[in-house]
């Protein structure tokens, strides 16, 4: 466990980064699971604090990578739940998709909610959080080409989505 002198440094990092990780989690998982993602992420970061990079940008990327893995685990668990429940019982309705509630809002989160998770995650990290492509590739554990492909697909989808919105407003 890190020494007490590290606590202040971790606290400063937490204060600066936790809101970003919370918003990232909010866009990737259901609202009820956001607190778990944030808690698990920063608990692990604190447990591994001596191994965490000391420079700001790599430290932030390292933390987002932990959060990314927590999100992946959440999707895996959710998928198992869905598969089992589709076979064993009526579909559960206690886990709501918050994205559906915000699709009428004209903000970036509402638009991103219309993208598949992999593209949404890539775009959120580089466009909204401001990670460099290099750091985002590290977070997502993928090559630069794979990241570019996800961003390219996201742009193609958004071009169509936003054009449709303009057309709808014109016809309104």
């Amino acid at each position: 466990m890190p020494e007490q002198s590290a606590a202040g440094e971790f606290e400063s990092f937490f204060v600066a980064t936790a809101p970003q990780v919370r918003r990232y989690a909010h866009r990737m998982v259901d609202a009820a699971s956001v607190d778990d993602i944030v808690s698990e992420t920063f608990t692990l970061v604190w447990q591994r604090w001596v191994d965490v990079p000391t420079e700001e940008a790599p430290r932030r990327a390292w933390t987002f990578r932990v959060a990314h893995h927590r999100v992946q685990h959440w999707y895996e668990a959710k998928q198992r739940d869905v598969r089992l429940n589709r076979r064993l019982a009526p579909v559960r309705t206690d886990v709501a998709d918050h994205a559906a509630d915000v699709t009428d809002e004209a903000d970036v989160a509402a638009v991103l909610a219309l993208l598949p998770p992999a593209e949404r995650e890539a775009m959120w990290l580089v466009v909204c959080v401001g990670l460099t492509p290099k750091d985002a590739a590290f977070v997502l554990d993928c090559s630069a080409s794979a990241l570019t492909t996800r961003l390219s697909r996201a742009r193609q989808r958004l071009t169509v989505i936003l054009a449709d919105r303009v057309a709808q407003e014109v016809n309104r």
Partner: peptide, 21 residues
């Protein structure tokens, strides 16, 4: 691609930076 995505959002009146809900 990041630059193109940012430009696309701005052209449609969407601020690319996230806002905490």
């Amino acid at each position: 691609e990041v630059d193109a995505l940012t430009a696309l959002l701005l052209e449609n009146g969407i601020e690319p930076r996230d806002v905490a809900p």
